[in-house]
Amino acid sequence: MASVNYPCKSLVVLVFVSLLESSTTILPSNSDKLFLALYYESLCPYSANSIVSYLNKLVEDDELLSIVDLYLSPWGNAKIRGNDTFVCQHGPYECLLSTVEACAIHPWPKLEDHFPFVYCVERLVYERKYPEWESCFEDLGLDPKAVSECYTGGYGDELEKYATETNALQPPHKYVPWVVVDGQPLYEDYEDFITYICKAYKGTATPKACSKPSGYSIQRPKAKSIPPVCYRDTIISTLLEQI
């Protein structure tokens, strides 16, 4: 199906186009840990749900988090169109929020610093209040200067190259949220990522969550056995009805 074009020729564009200038592959910062990556886009309701309802469980569990390097990549199904423009699946506002989240990760590289902000923004998306995203600075007691400077001009070489990373995924991502554990995509089982982490972990300090019979395994009703996703080529009007 055809996608709808939303030309975004602005500072937002400059930020994300600059992300394409490197093909550096992101590797776990600690080889003893499992590398968990979430490839998402800011206004996909299912991406928001994966962060608010599932990733948050991981971040709140200190034992479980100690065996994981969690990496967020806010590019998703956006596409470069040339002439310094790109389009986002859910329109210009998604371009803005994805850039804002990338600009939060840049100056606050530690998970404990940037995840609360990303979680706050995505919670507002989940609650359909995303135009209020700037309230997250005040709610979390954060100085918006670093994010603002990144957004308006500090986008250069230091930002992670989210577009390049997402476009280079093998196998290619089909939708978001797209969750990868140590290089292996979980496909439709993305909600059960903690179960996969527990199965893949080879260390001796097994977290309590992994000692449970089924970990945090998600039990979905049979009628909803496959979790919803935002497909790369889904018609935009259908998705916007769900935001």
Rank of each mutant, 00 (worst) to 15 (best):
F16G: 06
F16A: 02
S18M: 03
S18W: 09
L19V: 00
L20E: 13
L20S: 13
E21S: 14
S23I: 04
S23A: 12
T24K: 13
T25V: 15
T25D: 06
T25N: 05
I26H: 04
I26F: 01
I26E: 05
I26Q: 10
I26Y: 00
L27W: 02
L27V: 13
S29H: 12
N30F: 00
S31I: 10
S31F: 06
D32C: 08
D32V: 02
D32K: 15
K33L: 14
K33N: 14
K33W: 01
L34H: 06
F35C: 08
F35R: 01
L36R: 06
A37F: 01
L38V: 09
Y39N: 13
Y40M: 14
Y40N: 09
E41D: 15
E41H: 07
S42P: 02
L43Y: 11
L43M: 15
C44R: 04
P45L: 05
Y46T: 00
S47M: 08
S47P: 02
S47E: 03
A48H: 01
N49T: 12
S50D: 08
S50E: 11
I51L: 15
I51G: 02
I51N: 07
I51Q: 08
V52C: 04
S53K: 13
S53P: 00
S53C: 07
S53H: 08
Y54P: 01
Y54Q: 10
Y54A: 06
Y54H: 15
N56E: 10
N56W: 01
K57Y: 13
L58S: 05
V59C: 07
E60I: 14
D62Q: 13
D62S: 15
E63H: 12
L64F: 08
L64M: 09
L65S: 06
S66F: 07
I67A: 08
V68N: 11
V68M: 08
L70G: 04
Y71Q: 14
Y71L: 13
L72V: 12
S73Q: 05
S73M: 05
S73G: 03
P74T: 12
W75S: 05
W75G: 05
W75P: 06
N77K: 14
A78Y: 04
K79D: 04
K79V: 14
K79Y: 02
I80S: 13
I80H: 07
I80F: 14
R81L: 14
R81M: 12
G82Y: 03
G82N: 12
G82K: 08
G82D: 11
N83I: 09
N83F: 10
N83V: 03
D84S: 04
D84F: 05
D84G: 03
T85Y: 00
T85M: 07
F86C: 00
F86L: 11
F86W: 10
C88M: 03
Q89R: 05
H90E: 10
G91R: 11
P92T: 05
P92G: 09
P92F: 10
P92W: 03
P92D: 01
Y93E: 09
L96M: 07
L96F: 10
L97N: 07
L97E: 11
S98N: 15
S98L: 05
S98D: 15
T99Y: 03
T99H: 02
V100Y: 01
V100Q: 12
E101G: 04
E101T: 11
E101W: 07
A102W: 09
C103Y: 01
C103S: 13
